[in-house]
């Protein structure tokens, strides 16, 4: 006690003041009703603010995980949507006496798996363009999977590494996408025009009358892109003299230069379909 008093006297008044005021503060808020209420209220607000700030900071630090989980959730919803789109296509066809989606287990058997991916690199200004993605076979990516984005199609996976894959962009000279316009099948190709939001749709016969603004969808008649995905709209059409097919320019609904997140779609039955096709070819 004597040592404490000596310390207080030697170290000047400030320490003494702080100690006395600390005791006073405790006594004031404990034994005075008015000050006690003010303190409780202030403390409550301050504690609330601190908790709110802490929550915000925590949320900010958790953003990458939140984004990742949302991407996966989005992918799951897209898979579900693709499933429904596919089956509703069949049920609308009255030629089938038995709609396919009433078959046992048909709805419960997933047809697609969807994997979200970030674009690592992308190009649009070359003759043949490629998209690098941050998913590989460790994530379930297989060769020839379709790559779609929020608003349209993006490409086809060609090379798969453990954690990365390389997709051939739709802006590639070897790119062929089976598309349909007003029920007619066509082939969508890239002819290296300067406007990389525009692709060419071939093989649309002259006996239909497509209008500017008509929507072009994927046909689903390939084991890559699911059907009924929007590709774009008819921007220009012409019928070359002597030709039975239109030359149609399609404005892509997804600008290939502004994609950030894409979805890799594995068609789960693709290996079965491919093996059946190979059997047919080999016969």
């Amino acid at each position: 006690m004597q040592a404490l008093l000596r310390l207080l006297f030697q170290k000047g008044g400030f320490v003494t003041l702080v100690l006395v005021e600390a005791v006073c503060f405790y006594v004031i808020v404990t034994f005075n009703t008015k000050q006690g209420l003010v303190w409780e209220n202030t403390y409550g607000i301050a504690a609330g603010n601190m908790l709110e700030q802490r929550r915000k900071a925590m949320r900010y630090s958790e953003l990458p995980q939140v984004v990742d989980s949302l991407m996966w959730e989005n992918a799951a919803l897209r898979a579900e949507l693709l499933q429904r789109k596919t089956y509703s296509h069949y049920t609308l066809d009255t030629a089938y006496a038995l709609p396919i989606d009433t078959l046992p287990l048909s709805r419960k058997t997933p047809k697609y798996s969807v994997i979200p991916a970030d674009i690592v690199s992308n190009s649009v200004d070359k003759r043949n363009n490629w998209i690098a993605l941050n998913r590989g076979y460790a994530d379930g990516v297989v060769r020839n999977s379709a790559v779609i984005s929020q608003n349209g199609i993006a490409g086809i996976v060609r090379y798969v590494d453990k954690h990365y894959c390389l997709a051939m962009s739709v802006l590639h000279q070897q790119s062929r996408v089976s598309a349909k316009l007003d029920g007619q099948l066509g082939s969508l190709v890239w002819t290296n025009t300067k406007d990389y939001t525009m692709m060419q749709l071939n093989d649309i016969p002259k006996d239909i009358d497509p209008q500017i603004g008509d929507t072009v969808y994927t046909s689903g008649y390939s084991s890559m892109f699911p059907g009924n995905l929007m590709i774009g709209t008819v921007a220009e059409k012409s019928l070359p003299p002597g030709s039975n097919f239109y030359a149609i320019n399609v404005k892509l609904s997804q600008n290939p230069g502004s994609m950030k997140v894409v979805y890799i779609i594995n068609e789960l039955f693709a290996p079965i379909i491919d093996s059946l096709q190979n059997k047919a070819i080999n016969e």
């Binding site: 320490v15 003041l17 006395v20 005021e21 006073c24 405790y26 004031i28 034994f31």
Partner: peptide
């Protein structure tokens, strides 16, 4: 320090009389 402690002593006694614990002491 001594002035603060003596002043606090006076404050404590005044607080007893005013029934305002700690206020005059502070």
């Amino acid at each position: 320090s001594a002035a603060i402690l003596v002043g606090a002593l006076m404050g404590v006694m005044i607080d007893f009389a005013y029934d305002t614990p700690g206020v005059h002491t502070s």
